[in-house]
Amino acid sequence: MNVITTKGVEKIYNPDKIPVKALNGVDLDIEEGEFTAIVGPSGSGKTTLLNIIGGLDRPTAGAVEVGGQDISELSDNQLIDFRKEHIGFVFQAYNLIPVLTASENVEFVMLLQNQSKEKRDARVKELMEAVGLEEKMDKRPSELSGGQQQRVAVARALASKPTFVLADEPTANLDSSSTANLLDIMARLNKEENITFIFSTHDQRVIDRARRVVTLVDGQIATDERR
């Protein structure tokens, strides 16, 4: 079953002044449970594609369907709610809320979803264990290493039980062992809980672990390799 379908997605920045075509007709299907890396040189449109799939940006042309729903028709506020329910984000710079503890960061999205305290507490515990940080629940991001912060970010991304997780260069700021550790966790969650992961990455270590690699060149899909 497809969780994401893009049809002829185009994105043109600065259409009025100096138009830059970031995406030029991307047709992509992502199936449930896939572990997909979107790769390509800088400026190839990886982040743009991720932003559009994630409902953070709108395509200039084409359609994006998530779970059968065309998200390009949603208003800004509907998109925010859509993201809250369906998409988990992992950012390159971790982007945790600095004034909240690790467990509060994970809990936050569930609060936005108005989940009960019992559910939240159980899920926080479960996720913090899954990312191996049950000892660091009450630490603030500034007290955690980069790798630990990114693991918290993964736990946060999963807290809302999203349809899929988007990770924009999640390992760009991490050392080798943290990267390996993070990838292990994500691969395990993918395998055991059938969570769909989509990465944009330059990182060969990530590409090596991916089960599908989509290569973008000049805003178009150049290769699409399933392993």
Binding site: L56, I80, K84, E85, F89, S160
Partner: peptide, 16 residues
Amino acid sequence: VKELGMLMAIGMNKLK
């Protein structure tokens, strides 16, 4: 700015 962007990205609506 970046943090507020992140909050809205992960689903904190404008009213909140």
